[in-house]
Design a binder for these strands. Structure first.
Length: 434
DNA sequence: GCGATCAGGT
DNA sequence: CACACCTGATCGC
């Protein structure tokens, strides 16, 4: 598709229609309450959560796309100046609440943008999404797949979220006299918390803004902001650290559980031989409990492979199902980034030389790129920090400005709670003139 | 003075 | 490893 038509999760000026896949901060960078380049298309649930994240945003810019419907947009081709129609369908991405993929079709052919997605074949939601996708495509070939390639490497292997949730429950069961803290973000992992809450027949503490989110999502009874009611608390991931856990343990015995796909990235660069082989065991403290395996970091912290992104095998199944003509990775910032074409080119029925490129990459840099990162970054950090401190000292900057900025940010978060209001959501539309 | 953005950390 | 999001510094109006 030519540029100047649509943007997905990109918010700079110059497109005729903007699409938001979900509300995580790394997909809304550039979007502010004063943003005005709309219209902005998103799922119904994202629209419901939107005012909390962007209070004061002009809600008439939001256009809701219900799942599984085709919507038609009248755009203008920037090159010819002629009108051109683009059809779009939103499909459940099974990532965080409200997250969708977008299937587009028009003169350019067909294009699927997954955003962040989890493709758990056995989950009912993924099966519905699968049916929607296949019905929408009928027998047409998908021309371009923009793919969530976060874990697009065979070493990224982790279980379903249901299995990971059972691991969390298992850890909690084996600590009947401990307080539990679980690290979460502003959106996502609600099903995990809900599952634990039902299983333990216990409310889970969340911070006030998160409770507001839970209520918007329809969880009315399982969460609380009263600490006295429960021994299980979900806390922001940024405050989940060793210091916090040590402090908590001075008051009550407490363990931390971090649900994340990340620690399960096998350090394949350390292994010898076949990178397609099974994920190597990387943890010396792996513990078993029944038939479940979990990872213990230190005396307080457990890590559980609960991921809202697809593992490698799920990405493979997804690409195999769709067999697109072209694949592009959405995530490209990774040190470890490898074009999905390398693994899945054979599903695309196209000749390509990415395999050759990959080998070149490995041969030239191999383990060194990882060693380089490990060795260089601490010294670089130290250098930057000392430079920064020196500059600050030289400039004689007091901390009053900084404290004020931080305070304002915190106040705004508080105001968001008070202002949160989901009344004025626009009506469903099937045709949009842009 | 203030919002926007970047860098750096976890 | 790299997710999602924080804080603090700096930029530019």
């Amino acid at each position: 598709m030519e540029t100047g038509m649509i943007s997905v999760d990109r918010w700079s000026e110059g497109s005729q229609a903007y699409f938001l896949t979900h509300l995580h901060a790394d997909h809304t960078s550039g979007l502010t309450p004063t943003w005005k380049w709309g219209p902005l298309f998103c799922s119904r649930l994202t629209a419901k959560l939107f005012p909390m994240k962007f209070p004061g945003f002009k809600l008439s810019l939001l256009k809701i796309l219900d799942l599984g419907n085709w919507y038609s947009l009248s755009l203008v081709s920037p090159s010819s100046g002629l009108p051109t129609a683009v059809q779009v369908m939103a499909i459940d991405a099974n990532h965080c609440p409200g997250a969708v993929m977008y299937l587009f079709r028009g003169e350019f052919g067909s294009m699927l943008y997954t955003g962040d997605f989890r493709w758990e074949k056995r989950s009912q939601r993924a099966q519905i999404a699968r049916t929607m996708l296949l019905n929408a495509l009928k027998n047409e070939k998908l021309d371009t797949l923009h793919l969530d390639n976060t874990y697009c490497h065979p070493s990224y292997s982790f279980p379903s979220r249901n299995a990971a949730a059972r691991q969390v429950a298992n850890i909690i069961h084996s600590h009947p006299n401990h307080d539990i803290v679980i690290g979460i973000d502003s959106l996502g992992k609600e099903d995990l918390l809900f599952y634990i809450s039902r299983l333990l027949k216990m409310k889970i503490w969340v911070w006030p803004e998160r409770l507001q989110t839970m209520h918007l999502l329809g969880f009315l009874d399982n969460f609380t902001t009263k600490t006295s009611l429960t021994r299980v608390r979900a806390i922001p991931r940024y405050s989940f650290n060793m210091e916090t856990l040590q402090a908590l343990n001075t008051m009550r015995p407490t363990i931390g559980i971090m649900p994340s796909g990340l620690p399960w990235a096998a350090k394949y660069c350390k292994t010898k031989g076949n990178i397609f082989g099974p994920s190597p065991s990387t943890c010396s403290k792996k513990m078993t409990n029944g038939d479940l395996v979990f990872e213990r970091y230190d005396e307080y912290t457990y890590s559980v492979p609960y991921s809202d992104h697809s593992c490698f095998f799920e990405i493979k199944e997804f690409v195999e199902l769709l067999q697109p003509s072209n694949i592009k990775g959405i995530v490209s910032s990774s040190e470890c980034f490898i074009e999905p074409q390398y693994y899945f080119g054979h599903f695309c029925g196209k000749k390509h030389d990415s395999r050759k490129l990959y080998h070149k990459f490995c041969d030239e840099e191999g383990d060194e790129r990882f060693k380089g990162v490990r060795i260089q970054s601490p010294s670089k950090v130290n250098c930057n920090m000392s430079q920064r401190k020196r500059r600050k000292k030289e400039a004689g900057i007091s901390s009053s400005r900084v404290n004020r900025v931080s305070l304002l940010r915190r106040m705004r978060r508080g105001i968001k709670i008070a202002d949160a209001d989901n009344e004025s959501i626009p009506e469903k539309l099937h045709f949009f003139s842009v």
